[in-house]
């Protein structure tokens, strides 16, 4: 289905830039998020995914893109991301200027899903560009070319952000967030997280359980020296390392503790906790 969509792409678009998802990305639903997303898609409501890092937001998007059979354009936002980075810009080539579409324009033209990851990291003026796309106008004005792109019904906008960084500077503006339907992602409950780790890394149940246990304890330490607890992604990394024959203590340390913090005392505490459960 994904292929057939791509055949209808406008001619000036390069198909290979899209992520054509052929195999089903593994995703274990925790609630009604798949149903909600599908409904949002049908009704052309943009979606905001929130939740801590590494809890499965991006994987969910991949899964949904596969499920809906649409190309997915992911933009990882950073603090230097400008409006022309997402919409498009003129480039100089051999004495001529040519226009190059940005990822957002491409997604609009192709009727795909545009996923702006970590939207709060982008500059405030960039966030505003998506406003006309995210309400019922569904248009993308391309000022530089003096044209306006109208999004086809297949086009879908999704953004993600992590409310955990409680910084004043990193807050999503009300005018932005009130255009979206929100889906909240949390760390999966214990049994599900064990299953996810097992599936993703091929670890056995005992190891997965240990990992989840350790993760729980690090999540206890949030705001007591850790900004975030260990994410599911880190646990998968650790499990994979162990499966490749790395000693568990080393793997936990390298994949989890050292990724979480640089603070020497905190690392000491983490290794003590690890010591207590391994």
């Amino acid at each position: 289905m994904a292929i057939s969509k791509q055949k209808n792409l406008p001619k000036n678009l390069k198909v290979q830039e899209f992520m054509a998802i052929k195999e089903e990305p593994y995703y274990l639903p925790m609630g009604k998020e798949i149903k909600l997303f599908e409904a949002a898609c049908k009704n052309m409501i943009p979606v905001l995914l929130k939740g801590p890092t590494g809890c499965g937001k991006t994987r969910f998007m991949l899964h949904m893109a596969w499920k809906l059979g649409r190309p997915l354009v992911t933009v990882s936002c950073h603090d230097d991301l400008t409006a022309s980075d997402v919409v498009g810009r003129c480039l100089v080539k051999g004495g001529e200027t040519i226009w190059v579409d940005g990822p957002l324009s491409r997604a609009v033209k192709a009727g795909g899903i545009c996923y702006l990851d970590e939207i709060v990291e982008a500059r405030k003026d960039t966030t505003v560009v998506i406003h006309p796309l995210a309400d019922d106008r569904r248009i993308l004005p391309v000022e530089k070319r003096g044209e306006t792109l109208t999004a086809p019904p297949e086009f879908m906008l999704a953004i993600s952000y992590n409310p955990g960084y409680q910084s004043v500077l990193k807050e999503l503006k009300q005018s932005t967030r009130q255009r979206f339907m929100a889906l909240e992602f949390k760390y999966p409950p214990e049994e599900l997280e064990v299953e996810i780790i097992r599936h993703e890394s091929g670890a056995d149940e005992a190891l997965a359980k240990k990992l989840v246990m350790f993760a729980g304890k690090t999540r206890n330490l949030k705001d007591r020296g850790l900004t975030e607890g260990a994410s599911t992604r880190l646990l998968v990394h650790a499990a994979r390392l162990i499966n490749s024959g790395i000693e568990p203590v080393k793997a936990f340390e390298a994949a989890i503790s050292l990724s979480l913090t640089d603070d020497a005392e905190m690392l000491e505490t983490l290794s003590e906790i690890l010591d207590s459960i391994l």
Binding site: N220, L221, R224, G225, E268, T269, L270, I273
Partner: peptide, 13 residues
């Protein structure tokens, strides 16, 4: 003591 407090917070929440 501060480390023990942190340790307790970690293992017990």
């Amino acid at each position: 003591s501060s480390r023990l407090e942190l340790y307790l917070k970690g293992i017990s929440g």
